[in-house]
Write a protein that binds this DNA or RNA. Structure first.
Lengths: 187, 187
DNA sequence: AACGTTTGCCAACGTGTGTTGGCATCGACT
DNA sequence: AGTCGATGCCAACACACGTTGGCAAACGTT
């Protein structure tokens, strides 16, 4: 049952869906436009993915593939994470699709929160001094990385778009590092 | 000609529009729902604002009211800006509306870029060492502040929502400060 | 060659949208 | 009292959307 004849169609739909969701957001990415991109009839999308909601769920499946932080020196985790994030974001529409959609679609926002809790939080908890502070620290890390992605891939602020990835990582790295390990600065 | 009879209606529409745009985004905030919130007929919205696009333009008009940075010591500008941003964001739906909408609506994204270039950039240029670096530095400041707003008001990441404004500002302040004045770290 | 299953397209439905024009009502002014 | 513009609601338009059911062609199996 490995190579069914419709697998190519299924995949083409998924690629087109990711592109449309990434560039248009959830509501403006129509089933019809996705089907047109995949050179296929809209009803095929329904047959293979049930409805728009499920199609998005399939298209927004994502693994951050965060590296094993115990392998890098404690002082360089921030820089490593910054580089990894930026690298993971470029050349894959999935995260941009998820980010754009999560601004207006509650299911997408849920997915984003899941991704945060299930993938980023554990890594942060493994590095930061007090485990009780891990959620807040992870939230701060998320705010910087998502903010950078927002300005670079969604809002397309010219100076942020024009910045080479290496330079962006060099700027943001120390910020992440501070959020991870610097002693708490609660007022 | 100060107090026309329809001014209350106009204002009510604007308030309802801001709330809807802030909570639903551009496409899901319908003229009908806005009119219902304002206890008015949908056609009134059209008569007073022309069309949905212009209504949004009116509802998303915003002034950051950034403070005069020459009045604060150079080392505290970051903290001052962080506090000001957070304070300006709470209790006013306009910025959240603009942020949510700019993820899927190009006109809103344009407005966001305008706001960046016309209001944030000059302030950054007045503080940072080399004027040529001002755009990039302002972009970094925007990435952190917008990212925080995204996590706090749009995605509603629990740890970021639960953080008191003062604590958030205390964490983010030094980041802004570094983006503003720390010597360039281009690779 | 004949069968059933899979893959695909077409036409249509019901719904919600932005938007428009016409008609009643209210207020001010003569 | 009568006129006129401002204010408001109702009904409807045209359109795009997600979604559905039926029918033709292609395929694999016997």
């Amino acid at each position: 049952m490995a190579g069914r004849r419709s697998d190519a169609t299924r995949a083409a739909i998924l690629v087109a869906a990711r592109e449309r969701f990434a560039s248009d957001g959830y509501e403006r990415a129509t089933i019809r436009s996705i089907a047109a991109d995949a050179d296929i009839d809209p009803s095929m999308v329904m047959r293979y993915y049930g409805n728009k909601e499920k199609l998005f769920a399939a298209a927004a499946e994502f693994d951050l593939q965060l590296p094993d932080v115990s392998a890098v020196p404690p002082g360089e985790v921030g820089a490593a994470l910054a580089r990894h994030f930026l690298h993971r974001w470029e050349g894959d529409d999935t995260l941009t699709a998820l980010l754009r959609a999560s601004a207006t679609n509650e299911a997408a926002a849920d997915r984003m929160r899941d991704l945060f809790g299930a993938q980023l939080l554990p890594v942060v908890a493994a590095v930061c001094p007090d485990p009780a502070e891990a959620p807040r620290r992870a939230g701060l890390v998320a705010s910087q990385m998502l903010g950078l992605a927002l300005c670079r891939f969604v809002l397309r602020l010219p100076p942020v778009v024009g910045m080479p990835a290496a330079e962006a990582a060099a700027w943001v790295g120390p910020t992440i590092q501070r959020y991870l390990t610097e002693r708490s600065s609660d007022t």
